[in-house]
Design a protein around this nucleic acid. Structure first.
Lengths: 335, 335
DNA sequence: CAATATTAGTTAACCGGTTTAGCAAAACGG
DNA sequence: CCGTTTTGCTAAACCGGTTAACTAATATTG
């Protein structure tokens, strides 16, 4: 098979007998300001069309220093929440003319580091990422290179940088109070143990409200590790089932924990809501197939994704202000 | 803020008083074959380390013609199936040293076209994509540029190109037969209407088996459009509820259709499995929260993603063989 | 009509790497 | 000891665009 080289700007220039600078000006749309005759514009455009010219974005990037690409680092794209978030980031980025490189960390520090290095070497114009526990120094590599960034879903408290998150603490407290006002007393919390603010806030919001009503029972606060969640959630449900007191409700800190947890509740023959009520942080499409009453917290995922891109693009264009957004969530009920 | 340029190979060369060619050879690991003294290697590596040199992949790409990036085009990354598929593609690509640019088509031809154009202009080394109804000509743009590609989940029948799919027809027929052997007579099928083989095969597998047992009732084959699925699925369930005959089971062609459909079944007070049984093409994590008997078809998503990358990388490295894989699925039951 | 301004396009440097050809010095060989 | 090989590194072209500086021709102006 012939190794036919792609048609370049030089090929068009040669064919028309003009310089490649002229062709470049026309095709990059800078003909207006740079005095190229309409006639020449037309000729170049026709030739480009005829020869089926497609610009080489790599060459352009090297020259301009802009790749029109943003990097997105999430925990795990196969997780519905991050899939949704990424989707909206992509759609918004598309509007601005950016493409997106996505990577996963699996909550692992080394993978986070690799992702950052790769994206920086690929010269992305900006990075949107979900912080990983203990990874602030890695995030600082990005700022050291003066690449704009936006944290989403979580943020490093001592890191002076943009973020877009939700009111995790407030809504978790509110959900807890809702349960209490319904007359429920023994309320359990199942939450990841890592030290990123989104999760610590969710846990703390519940704890503080329980304490306020003098209902806090430390034995009902179950911390689980991300890497072994299946097993640890199973164990937590088992413990709660056999707890000395009868448990009235369980708050699950994420959709993944909720799904796993509810599954084990059924396996332990715990009825919902007769035996226990359930709260899920985040909305899941498949609530529809559960056909049980669920209290859930709805995050504005689309808005978060879009805002993250908006901020990033502003900063790529030169803005220096640090933007920190906390979106409101909604406490919802399925009866 | 100072606009400090990144340290380049030239900077290292200047500092050491050597040529940039030498530095390049050392840092790109080609020192062995090219006779660079061990001493020089060491000096260069130390300087690179000390100056915190990071290669500019864009420059490298322009020079080598390889970007070490692959493009992935799916319907919608927020859909659990495609999110999973993309995740496994990414993880496998990472093993080979490739990064991934992901884009969504939303089953729209123009978006598919834009995605292909963008990826080609970004000079990706290969493309993995989920075909869109009627988009073969767009896919051919990729082959015209001699860029390797792999179709996943579906394929264009008249397009001589790689693909990785599952035995949609066979397993759908098998699932249908399973229902029939259970003694169910009136079996409905709810499936997307577009003309891509994965879906036509799923529908046809059911139809052919029903016909074989003389149980086919055309009124029970419900085609729905992707863009209006919510409304059309709702309507289909409503129709089935009020059908002259009592319906025994519904086969749903995808997880999204299943979730929406089962939700409307509950709203119409159809009990599962007492009133009707359900079949879902694909496995969903949240089956666990449904707590009902479900017959489902499990696809080897991880294997598909990995195989797609394996094939693509082989072809990037020069192979010319057309590889077409049909993976076996499993018919599963939750009781 | 000479001086100046505008128009239209060219030239060449540059972005930051890779890679081939070539050169000088050292090592080898008969 | 002189010719050949090998070793170690340099020089320069190249990838395909962008863009500032420049030239030459034409138009404007006082």
């Amino acid at each position: 098979m012939k190794k036919k080289r792609k048609v370049s700007i030089q090929d068009i220039a040669d064919k028309l007998g003009v310089s490649k600078g002229t062709v470049s000006l026309v095709l990059s749309g800078k003909a207006k300001g740079s005095r190229v005759s309409d006639e020449m514009c037309k000729k170049v455009k026709e030739a480009a069309e005829e020869m089926n010219y497609q610009p080489n974005e790599i060459a352009r990037s090297l020259s301009t220093g802009k790749t029109m690409t943003i990097g997105v680092i999430v925990t795990d794209i196969s997780n519905e929440f991050f899939g949704n978030l990424t989707f909206h980031i992509q759609e918004q980025a598309k509007k601005y003319g950016y493409t997106v490189i996505t990577t996963n960390t699996n909550e692992d520090l080394d993978e986070f580091n690799d992702a950052v290095t790769t994206l920086l070497n690929k010269q992305v114009d900006g990075i949107i990422f979900v912080p990983v526990d203990n990874g602030q120094q890695i995030a600082e590599k990005i700022t050291k290179r003066h690449i704009p960034l936006v944290q989403v879903d979580r943020f490093y408290p001592n890191f002076k940088a943009n973020y877009v998150v939700v009111d995790n603490y407030k809504v978790s407290a509110k959900a807890t109070e809702h349960l209490i006002k319904k007359g429920l007393k023994k309320i359990a919390v199942i939450c990841y143990d890592f030290d990123v603010n989104a999760l610590t806030e969710r846990r703390q919001g519940c704890i503080d409200m329980l304490r306020q009503y003098k209902l806090l029972d430390p034995g009902l606060i179950k911390d689980i590790r991300y890497q072994d969640q299946e097993e640890e959630i199973k164990q937590a449900i088992h413990d709660l089932k056999n707890y000395p007191d009868k448990i009235d409700a369980i708050y699950f800190c994420s959709r993944k924990v909720f799904i796993t947890g509810v599954g084990y509740m059924y396996k332990n023959e715990i009825r919902i809501p007769e035996d226990m009520e359930v709260v899920c942080f985040d909305k899941i499409d498949s609530f529809a197939i559960a056909n049980i009453p669920i209290i859930y917290i709805e995050q504005p995922i689309k808005k978060m994704g879009e805002k993250a891109v908006d901020i990033l693009v502003e900063q790529i264009k030169g803005s220096d202000d640090v933007k920190q957004y906390v979106f409101d969530t909604k406490l919802m009920y399925i009866n």
